[in-house]
Amino acid sequence: MIPFEFDYYKPATIQEATEAYCQLEAAGKEPVYYGGGSELISMARLGNLHFGSVIDIKAIPECKVLEYDRDNQLVLGSALTLSEICESKQFPLLEKTAGRIADHTMQCKITLGGNLASTILYRETVLPLLVADSRITIAGKDGIRDFPISRIFDKRLNLPKGSFVVRVSTEKGVVGSPYFHIKKTRNEKIDYPLITVAGIKTSGRLRIAFSGLLPYPFRSIKVENILNEFDDETVCAMEVVNFLSDKILSDINGSSEYRKFELKNTIINVLETMKDV
């Protein structure tokens, strides 16, 4: 039960959505875009979030696409549920990553765009997109624009006010790259990560992105350089640990020391499994 009232809008087109946002904003109706809604509802119930209107983007056709476009880009609509993405089996690394977010039933509700825009610090769906150099298409009052993910995602999705993610596009070659995904939790499979890594190997180089380690998900070129430069797995892992060391989270799921241990093991594990790929 949400202890406040708001209005509900379900636009059928991108334009309707952005116009509704502008009008509601101007009218003081504190609009928010609404995807799966699980996070908005749970935060609103606990009084941690307030809004005056929601704009549900699930009826916008562009937000539900799941196809390759003419440029051989895999296009995923932001309102696709994690389950729809997994069942489609189009993007193996994203499938693996999404399949470990919350639980299966929740994956039938959580959307790609919702997870990317989440305020909870993990946002694990961004990891495959970061390493795949995906492009993110957003819509706002200035129309529809397209950004490389590195431009628009730094720690969190930095959307211009009033805009929302329409779709995510990823090059076919990258989508099919050899990949890895490791998620470590305290002791229960369905939990927030102590550490999640996701990455690919492309043109002989490893790319890697992290969640759970710092208070935000990130891809680090410096870490990738370390991974690709050292021969000895343990030396390499310790280099990565030392590089990230002073920023690593400590919370009820695990201390920073333990996360470092998990990071070290995970890096060694990644290097070993990806060595001959």
Partner: peptide
Amino acid sequence: LPLVPETIWRMKTGGIL
């Protein structure tokens, strides 16, 4: 209790990497 991996790790290594 409870016996979570971090507890075991700490016990076995003294919390040193």
